[in-house]
Computed example of a mutant assay.
Amino acid sequence: MKACRVAVVGAGLAGLYAARALHASGIDVMVLEARDRLGGRILTTDELGRPAEDGFDLGPSWYWPQMQPAMETLISELGLPSFAQNSEGDVIFERMSREKPQRYRPTLQEQQSLRLSGGTGSAVHALAKEIPADRILLDSTVTAMALSDGGVNLTVKRSQKSADLRAERVVAALPPRLLEANVTFSPGQDVQTAVRWRDTATWMAPHAKFFAVYDEPFWLTAGLSGTAQSMVGPLVEIHDATSASGKAALFGFLGIGADQRVTLGEEVLKQACLAQLSRLFGADALKPRAVLLKDWAADPLTATAADRVGGGHPLPGSAQWVSGAWKDRLILAGSETSPSESGYLAGAVIAAGRAVADILSIMECK
């Protein structure tokens, strides 16, 4: 049986942040990731949907440095360049299908949202570089955890085979709802704990994002910012998604529920989104070089059946995410468990930082 001092389940922003900090502190750590890639809900791709180091963020893309100092500090530590989300130009509002969309001059934003040059995936890659490659295992799904003398035995499925890993402590850097649905615990979690995990909404899980990639940002020439809001749909919120390297794109959040998206089908949705962009931004919108549609509700490593409705940011709660027999062996560090900015990128950093502090405190006392 392989062994480590701390096993980190999940190689998203929270998991990699925690693993990097623990490794830097001299703690033997192993990262287990069910996907065949790093990042979790962070997914930066090229126009064909392939993971890329300079592309479009199909998952989270913004952070607000003044409101989210934890994220700003991390970006500074990693030395990653950023740029402001474009807000120059008019905003479009579409109120009713029988009315022509209206243009408005936007009000000055007090808090400017920033994006990372190359995409949010650049933070993932920068963190991973500071963790030994042999301590990160992809295609490794944790299916069970069992308490034993002095630690936790994890059952890990890899290439249709199961193996065991023993750790003194486990950092679960994934949404509580996903943890409750997919991992069997022995002994089982307290009822109240399991209910809390199950009732905590997973941010982004119900959502879908649509991208249209163009040769030129034609909306800027027309004096438009690329920002639009619509009560008609299918996209309810649209923004300029042009990369720092100049790859022109628009993206929007779909306002259609997960079940209805399945019924309509991907091609119908894509054509409906392009038709809407044409209404809002003109005929040039009908001539993309590529389109992308990422439905997070269809991703089993992000969403459960309970995530197909809703979609608001989870509400911060008490820090007591684990109780009973597991209290001293399991620490939750997904963004949803953060005491502030839960669901956001900053929430992942805060939650992971808290988990690392707890582990270091415990291990220093031994």
Rank of each mutant, 00 (worst) to 15 (best):
R35H: 14
L16S: 08
I256V: 08
H313S: 15
S122M: 14
T155C: 09
D139L: 01
A194T: 11
W203N: 00
R105D: 15
S122I: 07
D295S: 15
K287P: 11
S162N: 06
T44V: 00
L330P: 14
H207W: 14
A222M: 11
M67Y: 07
A319K: 13
Q111M: 05
V152G: 05
P175W: 13
P132Q: 14
R37P: 07
A194M: 11
E180P: 01
H125T: 15
Q111N: 11
P316V: 14
S162D: 06
Q320R: 12
I359W: 06
D259W: 03
A167S: 00
E99C: 15
L277Y: 08
A173I: 01
V152K: 04
F185E: 13
E336Y: 13
I256N: 01
A123N: 00
K247C: 08
R50M: 08
E336H: 10
T143E: 05
D36E: 04
G324P: 07
M204V: 05
I331M: 10
G121W: 00
A172T: 12
V6H: 11
W64A: 07
G121D: 01
E130D: 10
A249Q: 03
R37W: 03
R354G: 07
A126R: 08
L16P: 10
Q109T: 11
Y63E: 10
L16N: 08
L286G: 04
K327N: 10
L127K: 01
D36L: 02
V124W: 01
M30H: 14
Q160F: 08
P217C: 05
R261N: 10
A290Y: 06
P234M: 05
S140Y: 02
Q192M: 02
I350Q: 03
E336W: 08
K209Y: 05
G257I: 09
M67L: 14
Q276G: 03
G265I: 05
S148V: 12
K161N: 09
A163V: 03
A123P: 00
T302V: 12
W296K: 03
F218H: 12
F211S: 01
A357L: 02
R279K: 06
R135N: 13
P175T: 15
L154M: 12
D28P: 13
L179Y: 13
M145I: 03
R20Y: 04
L38F: 12
Q111R: 09
C365E: 08
T202N: 06
L116Y: 05
D54H: 15
F56D: 02
